[in-house]
Computed example of a mutant assay.
Amino acid sequence: MLRDNQPLAEQIGETIGYVNEIFDRKIESIKISVAEKSATTISGVVMGVILGILGLVFSVFGLATLAFWIAGRPELTMGFGIVTLVLLSLLLLIFLLRNILIVNPAVSKIISIFFADDDPQKPDNKS
């Protein structure tokens, strides 16, 4: 009687193995989705804060330049104008290089947080 049940037991074991594999893949898929969405959100927030602060400082210096120009103070106008142009170029540079400076490092960091303990090929550095 045990011999007749052995193929059934093997099939049940294989089925449990398949279910475990499907479950592991679903968990991995969820982790990747969460990592992607959180990386996008975090990099967007960081980008918004940086550009917002630089835009505010640019606006202040731009308005100061305009005020000194209207007041007729050419030496102060030139100084504030140069600073305003430097801030504008910095603002544009950060905006154009946002993927390299902000998005890619944020994605790498978040992926390393989510998948740091899952890599079985990494040697354990505990002594």
Rank of each mutant, 00 (worst) to 15 (best):
M47T: 09
M47H: 02
M47S: 08
G48S: 11
V49N: 14
I50F: 13
L51K: 15
L51E: 14
G52D: 08
L54Q: 12
L54F: 10
L54C: 05
L54G: 03
G55Q: 03
L56E: 02
L56D: 03
L56P: 01
V57C: 09
V57E: 13
F58G: 07
F58A: 07
F58C: 04
S59R: 03
S59W: 00
V60R: 12
V60E: 10
V60F: 11
G62S: 15
L63T: 10
A64P: 02
T65Q: 06
F68M: 12
F68P: 00
W69H: 14
I70V: 09
I70N: 01
I70H: 02
A71G: 05
A71S: 10
G72Y: 13
G72N: 08
G72R: 07
R73W: 14
P74M: 02
E75R: 07
E75N: 07
E75F: 07
L76G: 04
L76W: 13
L76I: 12
L76F: 12
T77Q: 13
T77D: 12
M78N: 09
G79E: 15
F80N: 07
F80I: 04
G81N: 14
G81A: 12
G81R: 14
G81Y: 08
I82Y: 11
I82Q: 04
V83P: 01
T84G: 14
L85K: 02
V86D: 14
L88V: 02
L88A: 07
S89G: 03
S89M: 09
L90G: 14
L90E: 13
L90C: 12
L91S: 05
L91P: 04
L91R: 06
L91Q: 05
L93G: 15
L93S: 12
L93M: 06
F95Q: 08
F95R: 10
F95K: 06
L96F: 10
L97C: 09
L97P: 01
L97F: 14
R98P: 00
R98V: 11
N99L: 10
N99E: 13
I100D: 01
I100E: 03
L101T: 11
N104F: 05
P105I: 04
P105N: 00
A106F: 01
A106C: 12
V107N: 00
S108L: 08
I110D: 01
I110H: 01
I110T: 08
I111G: 00
I111P: 00
I111F: 06
S112I: 03
S112R: 08
S112C: 02
S112A: 07
I113D: 02
F114W: 03
F115V: 06
D117M: 10
D117W: 03
D118G: 06
